[in-house]
Structures are given as structure tokens and as C-alpha cells.
Amino acid sequence: MKKIGITFSLIIILCIVTFTGYFINNKKKEDGKYLKATKNVDNSEMLGEDSKSVDDSDMVGQEDTLTTDYKDEREEKTTDNTEILKFVNPYGEWFETEISDNIPHHSYEWKYLKNKNDQISYEGDKKYYIRKGIDVSHHQGSIDWKKVKEAGYEFAFIRIAYRGYGTEGSLNLDREFYNNINGAHDAGLDVGVYVFSQAIDESEALEEAEFVLDKLKGITLELPIVFDPELIRDSVARTDDISGEQFTKNTIVFCEKVKEKGFEPMIYSNMYWEAFMFDLVQLKDYPIWYADYEQIPQTPYQFTFWQYSESGIVPGIEGKTDLNIEFCTYE
């Protein structure tokens, strides 16, 4: 009887140790450093094919009228009058960065911004108004662009290409690109394109630009060609050891090649990249497509487009879709 009791106790202890080890290992995975992962991908992209997962459970659901109090909570001044921004990533991790006066700041007024069930409005500003848009890739499948247009969406950024994040880093055309751009144009939407970049140096960034320009022959764009360099969270990727300095060089090479061919370039970014990766002083002449799923954009810096949700429901599209707005100036 005593042996049975000892054996049972050992089993209980073993179960506790096993569970604790499992919890710690998974906690370590969750605590990895934040990389730019507003678009999450899985291991299929190692072979040049990517898969996007979305989860926007923290987005504002009810109607929110946003005030300057939110901004005041995130910004403070040090004793030497240096402005410090506190910001949070989609995983709940907080960071601090010094706000630079050498980078152009936006002048949007968030008191005019409202969000009701992922539907943004911005009314009352005498300088700016907004347009609604989406961004898509083959992950959205076959899209009924007429329904998208009828739902009030005026523009779309369509993925034209992506590079796999594995060692080989093959460059691929998005398999729904031509269907999407033709459908969007036929429905009357303004269109731009983006490339998911895994370039590790300037030569690969140039290769991505040339690939995109080749696929755009004979196609008219109303919106920019977007360079979207990303790091992969919780997976080994070819860009893991690439510095912010190198990413900045890659971005300049891509954008200048696009400009050389008569297109407008743009950069996809978020607050982490603006604080710790990109040299925005070198990139200040290029427009920014800014991704942030907080109540208001956390960046103090200039941007033109805001990707505010990655879990929008849009008529004509099955499943979840990224939602965007464009800030336009009154003529």
C-alpha cells in the first residue's frame, strides 16, 4: 500500500513538472522580441508560398470618439525637454522612443475620428477628408469587386509579388494578381500594388523592383507601388539578421527604381519600424502606408494611408480583410 502511494505521488510530480516545462517553453515563444508582423505568415512561405493569418480581437468594436487624452497618455517630456513616445505592438509589448523633430509630423486631428464596428469616419476637419479602401492578396480568394465598390470602398492595394522567407528566397507573382487588378479596375476602384519583401541587400531589392515593373507593363496605376519589407516573428527567416541600416538602403534602392520608371513609390511601415528599424530622415521624401491597430495611429510622423484593421468584413470577400483609409486634402 505504501509503494502504491509513493508511485502515485511520483506520477503527480511528473505531471506537474511536464506541464510546467510546456508552459515555460510556450511562454518563451510568446516573449520573443517584437518584429514587424502585422501580416503573419506560416512555414509554407519557406517554399515561396505564404499564408496570412489574422486576429484583431483587440480592435475597438463599439463606437469610439477619440480625444487628445489618448495622445497625452502616450507622450511625455523628459527633464531636458526631450519628447518621448510610449507605444504598444499588436502583442501587448510596450516600447519607448524619442520623438524626432527632423522627421515631418502629421497634422491630423483625432477628435474628428470615429470608429464604429471597424467603420471609420473623419468629419469636421477643414483640411483633410478620408476615403475607404482595402488591401488583398490571393488569401482572399475570388473577389466580387462590384460588391466591394457598392459597399463604399474606393481604392485597393493589391499584392503583386512576394519573396519567400526561406534560405532560397524565391520571388513569386501573386497568383490572383491579374484577376484582382482587372476586377478592381473594372469595378471603378483606384488601385496600387505592394510587394512583400524579404530582400537581404540592395541587389535583391532592385530585383524585386524590376520584377514588379515587368509585371506592370501595360497596366495603369492610380496609387503607388509599395515596398513592404517585413521580419518574421516566431520563425527562422532570411531577414533575421538584417539591420535597420540595410533595410533603409534596400528601401531607397527599390523606391528610386520605381520613380525612375514613372511610378510613385511608397513604404509600408508601423511604429516599431519607425522607431527602431527605418532611418526616416533618409526616407522622409517617400509617402508612408502606416499599419496600426490601436484606437488611433500612434505615430507622430507623416503618413498618407492607415491600415487600421486586419479583420474587416467586406461584402464580396469571404473571410477577413485588411481595412484602410486614405487621408486626402481638400483642393
Score class of each variant (00 low, 15 high):
186 D>C: 07
173 L>K: 14
220 T>E: 15
193 V>E: 07
248 T>N: 09
150 E>K: 08
204 E>A: 04
183 G>Q: 02
198 Q>I: 00
199 A>F: 13
215 K>I: 04
208 E>H: 10
140 Q>Y: 07
209 A>S: 11
151 A>Q: 01
226 V>P: 02
152 G>N: 09
197 S>K: 09
125 D>K: 01
148 V>D: 02
233 R>H: 07
211 F>N: 03
172 N>H: 14
200 I>W: 06
241 D>N: 06
163 R>N: 04
251 T>N: 13
128 Y>L: 00
172 N>F: 06
217 K>Y: 09
212 V>F: 05
175 R>M: 11
176 E>P: 05
240 D>N: 06
230 E>W: 07
225 I>K: 14
180 N>T: 06
211 F>T: 01
225 I>P: 04
149 K>M: 05
135 D>K: 08
168 E>F: 02
220 T>R: 15
202 E>T: 14
150 E>L: 08
158 I>P: 15
249 K>A: 15
162 Y>Q: 13
161 A>Q: 10
162 Y>G: 04
137 S>I: 09
137 S>G: 12
219 I>R: 11
154 E>Y: 03
242 I>G: 01
133 G>F: 13
180 N>P: 12
147 K>G: 03
138 H>N: 10
181 I>E: 03
241 D>F: 03
202 E>N: 10
175 R>C: 13
168 E>C: 01
230 E>A: 15
182 N>A: 09
231 L>W: 03
231 L>F: 01
243 S>A: 07
197 S>I: 08
234 D>G: 01
237 A>F: 02
165 Y>I: 01
206 L>V: 08
160 I>S: 04
244 G>D: 07
140 Q>H: 11
133 G>W: 14
177 F>Y: 13
147 K>Q: 12
247 F>W: 09
206 L>H: 11
179 N>C: 03
222 E>V: 10
215 K>P: 02
144 D>K: 03
247 F>L: 04
149 K>H: 14
166 G>F: 02
200 I>Q: 07
196 F>R: 05
123 E>F: 00
155 F>L: 00
167 T>Y: 05
132 K>R: 10
144 D>F: 00
150 E>W: 03
175 R>W: 05
157 F>D: 06
145 W>L: 02
165 Y>S: 04
125 D>G: 02
201 D>Y: 12
199 A>K: 07
219 I>Q: 10
249 K>H: 14
249 K>W: 14
188 G>D: 10
168 E>L: 06
187 A>W: 10
131 R>L: 09
198 Q>N: 01
161 A>H: 10
195 V>L: 15
156 A>W: 10
233 R>F: 05
